[in-house]
Deep mutational scan, measured.
Amino acid sequence: MGFKLLSKLLVYLTASIMAIASPLAFSVDSSGEYPTVSEIPVGEVRLYQIADGVWSHIATQSFDGAVYPSNGLIVRDGDELLLIDTAWGAKNTAALLAEIEKQIGLPVTRAVSTHFHDDRVGGVDVLRAAGVATYASPSTRRLAEVEGNEIPTHSLEGLSSSGDAVRFGPVELFYPGAAHSTDNLIVYVPSASVLYGGCAIYELSRTSAGNVADADLAEWPTSIERIQQHYPEAQFVIPGHGLPGGLDLLKHTTNVVKAHTNRSVVE
């Protein structure tokens, strides 16, 4: 069995187990497998329904001669939608809004960016022009300005110390501490036991640490421990890039980060 097929099978099995364990909360999309990078042309966006009122959005972007996937989250909030992270750029984010209108038909009224990198804030200006209120932590807003990236308009308070959590509509926002970046936030959907790890969490097929220019490698494993301790009931975990899975993604990420750190020390 090929690795790609095995990865998709694991996603399907995880979703099936969740649907059985929580039949009222989960209505997993039966329309197909989780979209992969090879299936999404740059400039297009796919939506994948995880649970009743919960979707991931998947886009792709060219970077350094390669094409990478990027995940975000959409959560229903009454007759409105909360968006977590842009679709990595203005063109993708405009396509995301169009796809949401086509498939869901509810307005996106608020959006949260989970850290300051372009795959999370690139497209904020498109959201703002569409009347979406954009939010991020003060740290993310400051770092985005320093980096020359787009800056969300509103500040999220109460997320300055490791372990801080605040309720934001249908989700809980959690600051686990520094990891992929010093400002990275985690998003949890309690009604569906869905954990969105953003770039602080890796997919299972990833074996290298990737972009760690703004990471705190020493603190990252401790931050992941905080996530595990705060959300032990999480059933569906979405990484910032690639295929979702279960809580095993947290341990896998820790292993990859520690291996990278150990290699760096040896070198």
Rank of each mutant, 00 (worst) to 15 (best):
V237Y: 02
R46F: 08
N149M: 15
T86R: 01
I17H: 07
S208T: 14
K91I: 14
N71D: 04
G245H: 03
P170R: 05
N71K: 04
P23T: 10
E145W: 12
I40N: 06
S193C: 05
L83C: 01
A66Y: 15
E101C: 04
N255F: 09
L96Q: 00
D125K: 09
S160T: 13
R206D: 15
T222S: 13
R263P: 13
A25K: 15
G72H: 03
N92R: 04
W220S: 02
K251D: 14
A209V: 12
P176Q: 02
I58G: 05
S193I: 06
V126M: 07
G242V: 04
E101F: 06
V28E: 09
E33C: 07
F26G: 14
T36C: 07
S160R: 12
E39S: 13
E203A: 08
A95P: 01
L247N: 15
Y175W: 05
G158A: 08
L243Y: 14
G89S: 05
L9F: 10
T134E: 00
Y68N: 08
T14C: 10
F3T: 10
T134Y: 00
P152L: 02
L5M: 15
Y196H: 06
G246M: 04
I20G: 14
R142W: 09
F26V: 15
D29G: 10
V132C: 02
K91F: 07
A66E: 15
G123E: 04
N149R: 12
I151W: 05
S56R: 13
S161H: 13
S62R: 12
E225T: 10
D52K: 11
S30Y: 12
P221E: 10
G53H: 09
P107D: 08
T36P: 12
W220Q: 04
E267C: 04
I58F: 08
K258E: 14
A59Y: 05
T182A: 13
D119N: 05
L106K: 10
G177N: 02
V124K: 01
E33R: 12
I40M: 15
T114N: 00
D77S: 07
N184W: 01
A179R: 04
A144K: 04
T261A: 12
V37Q: 15
F168Q: 02
H117V: 00
G246S: 11
V124D: 01
Y68D: 08
E99D: 08
G242C: 05
I104L: 07
V187N: 04
V171W: 02
T93D: 00
A192W: 05
G122D: 13
L106S: 08
A94G: 11
D118G: 08
A25L: 10
R226C: 02
S181P: 03
L247Q: 11
R46Q: 09
G78R: 09
E219T: 09
P221I: 12
F3A: 08
K8M: 14
T86M: 00
T140Y: 05
Q103I: 12
N211F: 12
S30T: 13
T36G: 12
Q61M: 10
V146E: 14
L9G: 12
S160F: 09
